[in-house]
Amino acid sequence: MKITLNIWRQANASSKGAMQKYDLDDVSEDMSFLEMLDLLNENLNEKGEDPVAFDSDCREGICGTCSLMINGEAHGPEVTTTCQLHMRSFKDGDTITVEPWRAEPFPVLKDLIVDRSAFDRIIQSGGYISVNTGSAPEANNLPVEKAKADRAFDVATCIGCGACVAACPNGSASLFLGAKITHLGELPQGQPERESRVVDMVAQHDHEGFGGCTNIGECTAACPKGIPLDVISQLNKDLRTAMLHGR
């Protein structure tokens, strides 16, 4: 099939970017979206034009590296990651607009690549359980109710891709934040630091320049791992509790 691409090109963080049009023939339905871009890059390389820079690594939907806004939807029209999106989701003759994640805390580095280190700093601010190597008790001394373990697992599957931020009209990272708060808060091991964790992580989130959540729900619709909105409710509840305890 034939595809027309409208792609954001930007040389580096400090330069101004613009959309640019490319035509691509010989796209097959079985290609992944990124393989389609690989093909475009082969063509560009041949013509002596700078290939389009985009992020990807595992190409199987788990590392969270890939990150494209495709026709106005984070990771494109299916509920999956960009790398797992296939060209059969498009039609012959389609025009596809491809943009980087847009959020002030995610500055564009080049073309479609953004800097998501803000997420790492949110984790640094408290997204862990403080346990030094070697000091752990026997694993089965701490039974965890299956329902809780399952819930913790479900939300721990967040891949840190940033699609929630990209999709949120407020540029909020509440879904990402809530997922970590819920994962650790659901487990007995996570209790001792529960209140300081939520206060510190929210403060870091705000400090990075992410917007506040107004419960719009675009984030969860874009999330390739289906992280549900309850994590934001949980986040709010945990912060409220910490507030009542004067933190």
Partner: peptide, 16 residues
């Protein structure tokens, strides 16, 4: 929120 996204999308769909 407006400071969190100064560069707007060219195309943005609201899904949910």
């Amino acid at each position: 929120a407006s400071k969190a996204r100064t560069q707007k999308y060219v195309v943005k769909k609201a899904v949910a």
